[in-house]
Write a protein that binds this DNA or RNA. Structure first.
Lengths: 188, 188
DNA sequence: TTCATTATTTGACCTAAGTCAAATTACCGG
DNA sequence: CCGGTAATTTGACTTAGGTCAAATAATGAA
């Protein structure tokens, strides 16, 4: 699956100059402070955020509790998927967990660029395919693995998460309580 | 979300004649008997199946147990998503739960058609977006709802599932044991 | 119909994970 | 370096859901 990221990056690198220029022309950099919200609940997700540096997360509120749905690191693309796709109000927040710098692309501008540069439609498709496979894999984990197994999987495949993200957030990302996560960690 | 299906169908209807003809030209109908496998585990998912009639499911084996990941009815598009996208061996099976008739489109033929008719890339994107939102919603349910809530949701939004699919399969689709599902049903 | 097979339910008991409360530990600004 | 807040751990108890076994229903072919 990581290979698919490479494929996407190669595809971008191999784009013709005009398409690449168009892509650059609609992106702009911005910095956020730790704790800032890049996207508010109920706001329509009208931009995508490519993380250049720092850590961010996406979460929603489930009767008062914050449920983290995704963690973002360098080179990850942060959007509220359904809000972005349907251009409807977002259930989710996107929050900077550290100071963060991002490259922002507006939905509208990207749509217009896609209309003029068909290769960008294909690029969009690849992004969405990648996200689809990621979500599918996560669903698979919730469907058949225990909390301990899910934690071990993170430990193995994404140790940087455990090293940089507070346990409260990791617990909600795993769909378990903070106490349970603490106990899982206690026995290796 | 159902609205998005409408949007996709409208998009198809509004396609120019050549693109539509190309699409038709690469599709062919086929019938399967109840119990037939449309896709085997480890087989590369080289076709997509549009259900014209009947019921099918997608499942995988988790230490010997069949875990159903998706149920298909009329007009649903059945594929093993990651196997289809990456053209790699499938972890999943696709099985006809009743006699079934489908419209088959080969991956290779669709890719070639996309190269010649750019609107099909956009159509592909819409399909994948739709699937992405569907999976995301299912993940959300596993992340925050109890088994009872998930069952009630099916009962409300997809009552046809409960009426046509054996409980063993529904239970695995919900990620719970058959007995638990039976008990949930006993107390309304 | 009738038997046999399959689907579903029920019972008794077990286990993963949740909740609430309290105790530690880590970390930060002054 | 210190006090205070936030993060993490630990304890005691509850609960959702699992497992294994057995009992009923339902269904379909002869």
């Amino acid at each position: 699956m990581t290979l698919y990221i490479d494929k996407i990056n190669n595809y971008i690198k191999a784009l013709d100059t005009e398409t690449l220029m168009a892509l650059e022309g609609i992106s702009s950099d911005k910095k956020y402070k730790k704790g800032d919200l890049l996207l508010q609940q109920n706001e329509i997700c009208g931009k995508s955020f490519l993380l250049i540096d720092g850590i961010a997360r996406k979460y929603y509120l489930n009767d008062g509790k914050e449920i983290t749905t995704e963690l973002y690191f360098e080179n990850d693309l942060a959007v509220s998927f359904d809000s972005y796709t349907l251009q409807q109000p977002s259930r989710e927040f996107i929050e900077a967990l550290t100071d963060v710098s991002v490259s922002i692309t507006h939905y509208r501008a990207f749509e217009e660029a896609k209309a003029r540069f068909p290769k960008l439609v294909h690029l969009d498709l690849m992004f969405v395919e990648h996200y689809g496979m990621w979500v599918e894999n996560r669903l698979f984990q919730f469907h058949t693995m225990t909390a301990t197994e899910r934690y071990l999987d993170i430990l193995k495949k994404s140790p940087h998460i455990v090293q940089t993200v507070p346990l409260t957030i990791i617990a909600s990302y795993l769909g378990i309580s903070l106490e349970t996560l603490s106990r899982i960690r206690a026995k290796i």
